[in-house]
Nucleic acid binder design. Structure first.
Lengths: 111, 111
DNA sequence: TAAAACCGCTACGGCTATCATAGCAATATT
DNA sequence: AATATTGCTATGATAGCCGTAGCGGTTTTA
């Protein structure tokens, strides 16, 4: 079982666990942002639906990321499936503009 | 040598390499956002200065991330040291608000 | 009521990424 | 000529990730 990075506990880049470093540690794991993105972008989803939406994620990693995101209060599981919490949605509003930025980025790289 | 995720090439979560998935793959690597953050937040830095600022990053990983970020056009090296490009700075403007958000997040988790 | 499908996972073995530490060749400084 | 600084690279250990298979439980279908 992996250690879950939370503010106030030692994380990568900050022994005291500064909030931003804890966040970057949390999100800087394979599929962490992808799962949050997929969940916010597509709405409620069961474990297996999430798996499908992510196309190539393995269940063990999906499970690990979900545990972390839940512990961080970004994702929750109501009886029906996994959902982003208000906190998670709020973080997503910062993530979302990166979608448009990425398109521009793709064009820039063509030259 | 690791494959560098760029839009248009197969990446995690998208075989066609959709821009956002390429970006999430690029940034979803250990220290990727941390390096960009540290560089933008603290200004130009030599390899070793970056290493110090990141506190616990190993030179091999720093080197790997720098290669990727340079290939992605987010970071560059002028004779003096490493710098974020205009593109990199622009992406950072989307990253930066997460700093404040993270502080709020830290408070929320205390309850 | 029995079969089929779906639920959230977990186990496994193999590969890749990351880690900390040491050190090297080249240039700049003293 | 010696020292310090530059950007890395080598190494060997550990942790993370991958794909596949499948389990025990609930819900839906025939």
């Amino acid at each position: 079982m992996t250690k879950i990075p939370l503010p106030g506990t030692p994380v990568r880049g900050s022994k005291s666990g500064s909030p931003i470093m804890a966040l970057l540690d949390l999100l800087g794991r394979r599929w962490a942002m992808g799962v949050l993105w997929t969940l916010c972008d597509g709405g409620v989803a069961t474990f297996r639906q999430l798996q499908e939406r992510c196309e190539t994620i393995s269940p063990s990693v999906l499970n690990a990321r979900l545990k972390e995101l839940r512990a961080a209060g970004l994702v929750d599981h109501n009886g029906k499936g996994y959902v982003a919490t208000d906190l998670g949605q709020e973080l997503y509003t910062h993530l979302e503009p990166m979608g448009d930025w990425a398109k521009k980025w793709a064009l820039t790289l063509k030259d």
